[in-house]
């Protein structure tokens, strides 16, 4: 094992973590502001990828596809908020779990009816193909772009929430709903905007990742479960927590898959070590989550309330 390989794996973990952040940011925002648990967030990720692939396929332009994917996810998010979620804010988590579970069934089957049962094709834009030499190791340009995009979105989100009028309202909404309603903020519109924003981020993640993954029905659920792990580790409702949690999960998962089989190989034959290492690696992030919750039951960055 060389330093170059370790460095490359670290970058891979970072990139994976940043994509998880895009997913988790929306989830945690929606929970923080509206107190809503949304299982259908993974479906918005899927919608982003499908519309991006379809639009890119029609126009031959990845960037148009990206815009279409985000727009479609945001539109779907707004539509869902207005028709369904709005009625769930005052309900308990149980009702929210069931309603959004139902939405997964509807959106998955709906996507299949719309786009057919076969996976779609979405290619990396020509501008971002190939590799760049990072000194230690060549690295895929597209993955580097994903890292940059992830950091860019995180910064943008930070500015949005910290520096804009909308951000002030969002923070106020997290703290006291009645208060901001009394101040004359249109809370209904605010909720719709926040939900659509979270959906757009999920759609963006889906579209970006779709170019190097299989765009297929059900692609959102594995990411969704990891995103839940992320926000639980970070503290539900905390954007900063989502960032830290996402990077932790991304790096630990990648490193675990890479290093654990090698650790097992010290005392098992290679084939068995590979199997055992992979098995342990697949539950590593869940172990991490259990450990953190034992130490800090409300996550690393607990949100008061």
């Amino acid at each position: 094992m060389t330093a170059a390989l370790l460095f490359e794996q670290f970058l891979n973990g970072l990139q994976f973590g940043l994509m998880l952040f895009l997913m988790s940011a929306g989830l945690t925002l929606v929970f923080g502001v509206m107190g809503l648990i949304n299982l259908a967030h993974g479906s918005l990720f899927m919608i982003g990828a499908f519309f991006c692939a379809a639009a890119a396929g029609l126009t031959g332009n990845f960037w148009l596809g990206l815009a279409a994917g985000m727009a479609a996810a945001a539109a779907a998010g707004a539509l869902i908020e207005v028709t369904v979620m709005r009625r769930l804010y005052t309900r308990d988590h149980l009702d929210q779990v069931l309603a959004t579970f139902a939405l997964i069934l509807i959106l998955s089957e709906g996507t299949k009816i719309l786009f057919g049962p076969f996976p779609l094709y979405l290619d990396v834009p020509p501008l971002l193909t190939g590799t760049v030499d990072l000194g230690l190791t060549p690295y895929p340009l597209y993955r580097l772009a994903l890292i940059v995009a992830g950091i860019g979105v995180a910064l943008g989100l930070w500015l949005l929430i910290g520096r804009t009028r909308l951000g002030i309202r969002i923070r106020a909404g997290e703290n006291d709903r009645e208060m901001i309603a009394a101040l004359g903020v249109n809370i209904r519109a605010l909720y719709t905007v926040v939900f659509a924003l979270g959906a757009a981020l999920a759609g963006l993640a889906g579209a970006l990742v779709g170019a190097v993954q299989s765009v297929q029905v059900g692609m959102g659920e594995p990411v969704l479960i990891l995103a839940f792990v992320v926000i639980v580790i970070g503290g539900i409702g905390s954007i900063r927590g989502a960032m830290v949690g996402a990077l932790l999960v991304g790096v630990i998962d990648t490193m675990g898959r890479f290093l654990l089989p090698q650790v097992f190989a010290l005392f098992l034959d290679p084939s068995k070590a590979s199997g055992a290492g992979a098995a342990l690696a697949s539950i590593l992030v869940y172990l991490l989550m259990a450990l953190i919750l034992v130490i800090r039951p409300k996550g690393l960055f607990p949100v008061h309330a």
């Binding site: 390989l5 993954q213 692609m219 898959r257 089989p261 590979s274 199997g275």
Partner: peptide, 24 residues
């Protein structure tokens, strides 16, 4: 001979870690 033998997770979507190992 085998240069490496790796088991991935069922349903895995990101293979960056494995590809890096292949490269090395």
């Amino acid at each position: 001979t085998l240069a490496g033998e790796v088991y991935t997770q069922l349903g895995q979507t990101d293979f960056a870690a494995e590809i890096a190992q292949i490269r090395a």
